[in-house]
Each structure stands twice: as C-alpha cells, then as structure tokens.
Amino acid sequence: MTFDQFLQYVFSGVTTGSIYALTALGFTLIYNATDVINFAQGEFVMLGGLTAVSLHDAGAPLVLAALGAVAIVAVVGVVFQLLAIRPLHSAGILAQIIVTVGASLALRTAAMIIWGRESLPLPPFTGDTPIKVSEATILPQTLWVLGLTLVIVVALQVFYRRTLTGKAVRACSVNAGAARLMGISYSKVVLLSFGMSAAISAAGGVMITPVSFMGYSYGAILGLKGFAAAILGGLGNPAGAVFGGLTLGILETLTIGALPMSGASGYKDAVAFLILLIVLFVKPQGLFGGRSVEKV
C-alpha cells in the first residue's frame, strides 16, 4: 500500500466512521439516561436518510430537507419513548430492550413499505468535484460529514457542560435517584435523550446518503456498527463513542485495503463485529472506560 492509497483509505474510513460515531453517540445518550440498549438506533439513521430523500424529491431545498428529516426523526424518537418505552418503566430494562428490538423490526419494515427495496440517492451538499490531497482525492461531502460531525459533537459538549438542562441530563445518568431529589424531572430528561439521540443519528443518516445511498435495510448494520463503536470507546462514554466510531471506520477500510485477496470486501462488515466481540471479551469497559461495566 502506498502512502497515497493509505490516505485514500483513511479519508473513506473517517467518512463512514463519522456516521458510526454519530450512531454510537445516539446509542450512548439513551444508554446513559435509561440503561437501555436501543436496538432501534440504526433505524433512526436509516429514517433520517430516507426522509431527507423524500423531502428533497418533494421539492424542498437540500438544507431544508436535511433539517426537516432530522426534526421528523427526533419526533419519531420522542413518540417512541412516550408510547413504547415509558409504559414499561416499571417492567424493567429487559422489557424495554425487547421493545426496542420490536421497534427496529417495525420501523425497518415500515420503511420498506414506504420507500421500497431500492437504495435511494441524495445529491451531495456542495457538488461532487473531488479535491486533490497529495495523490489522493477527497470528496466535498467527506468534508461536510467531518465538519458537521465535529459541530454536533462540540454542540453536545457545550449543551452538557454549559446549560442547566445539559447538567440535569448528566446528573440523571450518574444517579437518577439523587437527580430526582434535586427536582430534576427524570422523565423529561429521558424524553429529551431519546429526541436528541434520534436527531443525532438521523443527521448521520442524512450526511451519509449522498456518499453511499440509503435503503430500508441499512439501519440494522449501521446500528450494529454504532454499538461496536460505542463499546470500543467504552459504553456510555460520549467521547469514547466518537473515537470508537472513527477508529472503526478507519480500521474497516484499512483491513479491506490490506487484505490482498479478491472478495475481501465481503468481509468488511465482519471487521466491526469481530472488533465488537474482541472488545467485549478482552476489555469490556472499552478503550476509555465505560460508565458502569461491573462484574457481578
């Protein structure tokens, strides 16, 4: 592999890696607020992309289509929490996780009925003239993905550390009981977490659609890679989630690049799951330490 090839793989890796990072972040938000592993997280990504496609096809300018899609999916996240998760608050974590599994199946199939089986495209945000970096090329959309991911991550940090609501969310993730005593409404925090989580993942879906299209079935695999990224970085650790996502994206493309045999790309998806298993087996607290990996 030459350096330019390497660079090319890294560019491509950070692009998909950013989406994994956003999915992982969405997953982390819900996990921190509720301890629930949301198996429908990937469907939020898928819905984001496909909703943007529809809005754009209906004549909305790209910016509005993107923002509209994020808003709509955020509403889906909130409604999902209200209708399906909240009634199970006293039934326990297992029941809530099972419901997210059901939601994943329902949303995926609903998307197939609405958008069909084909993968749908979205135009890049600002043209598709490649930019040359050394001998490698980089698409403008890649810069958008990276830039917007950075903006989202920074905005989230500012929200968490500088605003009162953000501090409340953090307090709840540390100790829900104590937070409640301080007058923080736990149920509002959970609702907010679902909304933000859905929005962030949907934004990932909107940004990646111009690069790799979007289809009804993409959610499952994107969600899984988001989990892998979150675990790699340390379950419940937002910074770890972002790092895990980018690392996973780069590792994936580099593995394909490094494997000389033909048909290696068929194994691309396996890389993420292999990493997931290895991390779970060897260092379940992830690279940066999770929130609460305890041995019982």
Partner: peptide, 8 residues
C-alpha cells in the same frame, strides 16, 4: 458482566 452484554 452485569447488564445485557450478551445481547450485543
């Protein structure tokens, strides 16, 4: 581990 790591 405590929790639902088996699911993942």
């Amino acid at each position: 581990l405590k929790g639902h790591y088996l699911a993942m």
